[in-house]
Design a binder for these strands. Structure first.
Length: 277
DNA sequence: AAATGCAGCAACCGCTTTCGT
DNA sequence: CACGAAAGCGGTTGCTGCATT
């Protein structure tokens, strides 16, 4: 019994994606936009499962995806959100639009969990880190209620004009250019942001900037600086956590937008997470 | 220089949720 | 409302490269 597989497993390729496959996928999405993943393998001729295509796109090929070099601010945010939300990586990722849930999950499992354990064993009880204090569901409920309240009050006192949400619109070329340099640890194609951004270059340069161009200026400064701003963010005067959030935040539908960051920020920095990290 | 162990990460698997009919 | 299909999500696996012996 059980559900049938999402695609015919026979003849479906597995393992790392090749540059050729990426090009095919990017080209297809450029023309058709993301979505309708089921049709992607058949329309592109890719010997890949639709899920695999979606994953590849969302985690690596999608414009604006930042890889590696988590900043201290990001780490703190992740730790806090994890404590609050549990392992709801997608929810956590929604606060860091440049990061994917997979990336955050991996980073948590490989880096932050260790740090946390270390901090706990070193400093004894660490109040902020323990999701066990309350049931996960209770926390979730509280969070959701809180979010709903905030969203409602925001909506009622809304002065921000709601931009046309164009979810399918890709980011500007500047964002692609900001893609992080390849991580040192791996030289495989799949992790090479350079390759990916190269793939996207043509596309991006053709993309209409619209109102979006304004927000890409943030990214411009990072790209133009010649220095990897993400990694040099340490000590950067981040006035709001929002500066951690990419321009894509505007692509998130209102109802899915996270708690306003000023709230998070206050909470985050008022709780003295300094002992950790 | 070779062998082994470990860490990091890309990708897969299967369950859950959402959407369309 | 019920059902099936598609998409989303989180846990897990397995490959690769680096460090250590």
């Amino acid at each position: 019994m059980g559900r049938p597989p999402c695609c015919d497993k026979t003849g479906v390729k597995k393992g790392p994606w090749t540059p050729e496959e990426d090009i095919v996928l990017v080209t297809y999405i450029k023309e058709n936009g993301p979505g309708n993943w089921r049709a992607v393998p058949s329309k592109t001729g890719l010997q890949r499962c639709s899920k695999s295509c979606r994953l590849r796109w969302t985690n690596y090929l999608r414009p604006g995806v930042k890889r590696g070099n988590f900043t201290e601010q990001e780490e703190k945010l992740i730790v806090h959100l994890q404590a609050l939300l549990g392992n709801r990586w997608a929810a956590i990722a929604s606060y860091l639009p440049e990061r994917t849930d997979n990336d955050i999950k991996n980073y948590w499992n490989t880096h932050l969990k260790k740090k946390l354990r270390k901090a706990q064993s070193g400093a004894g009880e660490v109040s902020w880190s323990l999701p066990i204090a309350k049931g996960q569901w209770e926390r979730r409920l509280q969070t959701d209620i809180h979010m709903a309240k905030r969203a409602l009050s925001e909506a009622l006192s809304l002065e921000i004009p709601c931009p046309e949400l164009e979810l399918k619109r890709p980011l500007s070329s500047d964002d692609a250019a900001v893609t992080q340099p390849p991580t040192l640890s791996t030289a495989t194609y799949a992790s090479s942001a350079e390759n990916i951004s190269r793939l996207l270059q043509g596309w991006m340069s053709n993309t209409p900037k619209q109102s979006y161009s304004e927000s890409t200026e943030h990214s411009n400064s990072t790209a133009g600086g010649g220095v990897d701003s993400a990694s040099s963010n340490i000590g950067v005067e981040i006035n709001t956590i929002e500066s951690l959030i990419s321009p894509e935040a505007s692509l998130i539908p209102e109802e899915q937008k996270p708690v306003p960051l000023s709230f998070l920020e206050n909470w985050l920095f008022s709780e003295g997470l300094a002992e950790f990290l």
